[in-house]
Amino acid sequence: MDRIPILKMGPFLLVTIQVDLYDRLALNLENDLISMVSKTGARGVLIDISAVSIVDSFMGRILGNIASMSRIMDAETVVVGMQPAVAITLVELGLTLQGVYTALDVEKGMELLRDKIGVMNDPEEDEEEPDDSND
């Protein structure tokens, strides 16, 4: 298996990572996601990592890259479902995923994305959570 399936859900793309990624797979994911964002004009990317038990600096960098690249193409990225042990380890490693939004689960991630995009679509509307994003 060399590719991770990407699901299109309305204006968003959803990726559920279910296997331990080796480097090739992770790099493919980065490429595939970015070209999907560009092709579909998606406004948000949800990456569900609740089944991932190890995130090292390589994997962390890929997540960061996806977020930065998507942002340039006007899409926000939310990483959802990180396991507690993974979060504790990443902090100790020194990787806090600056610039990547996070949410507890897919549902809350969607909400967050809708919020972000809603604000961007309608500048009149007041942002109700001023700057409580994760960057």
Binding site: S53, I54, V55, D56, S57, F58, Q83, P84, A85, V86, I88, T89, E92, L93
Partner: peptide
Amino acid sequence: SLVNQTKLITAASELVR
């Protein structure tokens, strides 16, 4: 424990990389 396992494996992963 799970947290300690995760720390060890992540460190090991960095070093093999």
